[in-house]
Simulated scan of single mutants.
Amino acid sequence: MVTVNLGTLFYVLDHVYGALLHRTKISPPFFSRGWGGTKLELLEKMIKQLFPDVGQNWPPTLVQPIWKTIWESKTAVLREGVFRTPCDEQLFNALPPESHNARVAFLAPKFLPPQKMACVLHLAGTGDHTFERRLRLGGPLLKENIATMVLESPFYGRRRPMLQRGAKLLCVSDLLLLGRVTIEEARSLLYWLDSEAGFGKMGVCGLSMGGVHAAMVGSLHPTPIATLPFLSPHSAVVAFCEGILKHATAWEALRDDFAAQKAVTTIEEVRERMRNVLSLTDVTQFPIPKNPDSVIFVAATDDGYIPKHSVVELQKAWPGSEVRWVTGGHVSSFLLHNDEFRRAIVDALDRLQWKESPL
């Protein structure tokens, strides 16, 4: 009788999935058009300024989404809203036109004042183009009086540039731009939830890339909120230089683009430049959130995309935060552990004080 170690099986599943998705000709690799030229230089400068600049710049621009009701039942209502991205002129001009307007879905209980509810903003993981998966994750939380807001990221869904195939961003600069604009939009939406809607508690969560962005947003928020990075690394360096996505990256195209600026003879020089650029996304360099005991990481024991050390590194950088381990890999945990993600959301919100105590 052959005994199969489940952890090994889950790890292999990640690699099989990654091979089918990233090593075939089904879709082009990430960054097939290179680094992004002067746009990358602009974004490197702006990312370096991110937390001292944006972190002190409160309040952000207050967005006013134009809402329409998609459906409503006896107990809940789903609305979708559209708003012009609130990022500054330089970022706005760097975005593709398709990304200028942001879209958001908002699922909330009916007949309950926002002061007696919590709301969690869900940010997109790599390849999460629509609202549906995150709405399914948040939907069961309605019975806990927790509303769900879902942001469609720039470069994704209806905001995807015409020439981009799926989630495969054309340039490295697009990855930094996606992150910076997502953070700006998320902070403005949290400000709307607080000042306009008046929710009693708030949180931000995300899976994989969305978890990195959620950690950044939670770090920069001026008051305590629940921060929930799921299956996410401490930096994009881990994802693209250590994990399976390194096989989905157009290293030759990046080398050729780099060679036009500097004599480059080996792929390793290009990988080193990638590490330097993506080190700007290192969340351990961001401030510790205002309420670290309301930070809960959920990580997988056998993740082929995100190694354990990356999760532990961020948890150590944020003393008081918690890591919860689920058995599985990146893909299997994404599919099988939604209940654990929901439990983390409930528990993190429970550790916050109500802005105004419900009557």
Rank of each mutant, 00 (worst) to 15 (best):
S232Y: 05
A317T: 11
G127H: 00
F83M: 00
E41T: 14
S232K: 03
P29T: 07
D256V: 12
R134N: 15
E340G: 05
K74Q: 12
K45R: 14
A236K: 03
H15E: 06
F30R: 04
D194W: 06
V212K: 01
A124K: 06
V150P: 09
R165H: 11
K262W: 07
L190V: 02
R180F: 04
A215M: 14
P233N: 08
S219H: 00
V323I: 15
A118I: 12
R23E: 09
K308Y: 00
L254D: 11
V264L: 02
W354P: 07
R273H: 09
K48P: 01
D194E: 14
G243K: 03
D282S: 12
V172W: 01
H309Q: 10
P86Y: 02
V270M: 12
R275T: 12
L121S: 03
F297E: 03
M46W: 11
S333G: 05
V277H: 08
W35T: 01
E242G: 10
T75G: 06
L40G: 12
T301F: 08
H122M: 15
Y156V: 02
K290A: 15
N276W: 08
K262V: 10
V104N: 02
I345F: 00
M209K: 09
A348P: 09
F341G: 02
S27T: 11
P140S: 13
W251V: 14
F240Q: 06
H122E: 04
Q90E: 13
L112R: 14
M149E: 00
L78D: 04
A94G: 06
R271G: 06
G36I: 10
L220Y: 07
K308P: 08
R324F: 06
L169N: 00
E144I: 04
A108D: 00
I296T: 15
F106L: 14
A167G: 06
V238M: 05
T266R: 13
T3E: 11
L178F: 09
F131D: 13
T38P: 05
G320M: 07
G218D: 07
P287K: 14
K39W: 02
W251C: 01
V63F: 04
N276K: 15
S99G: 07
P233T: 08
R103M: 12
R255T: 09
K45Y: 05
D257H: 01
S173W: 01
K168G: 05
K116P: 00
D174K: 05
P140W: 09
L141W: 06
L151F: 03
L245Y: 11
P28L: 04
R271V: 00
G243W: 05
P292G: 13
P60S: 11
I26F: 10
V264D: 02
T265D: 04
G206W: 00
L280N: 13
G179H: 01
K116F: 00
R79P: 04
G218H: 08
L20I: 10
K74A: 13
A248E: 10
I146R: 09
M209G: 05
G127P: 02
H100Q: 14
S99E: 08
K168R: 15
P97K: 14
C171H: 13
I70G: 00
T265A: 09
P154F: 09
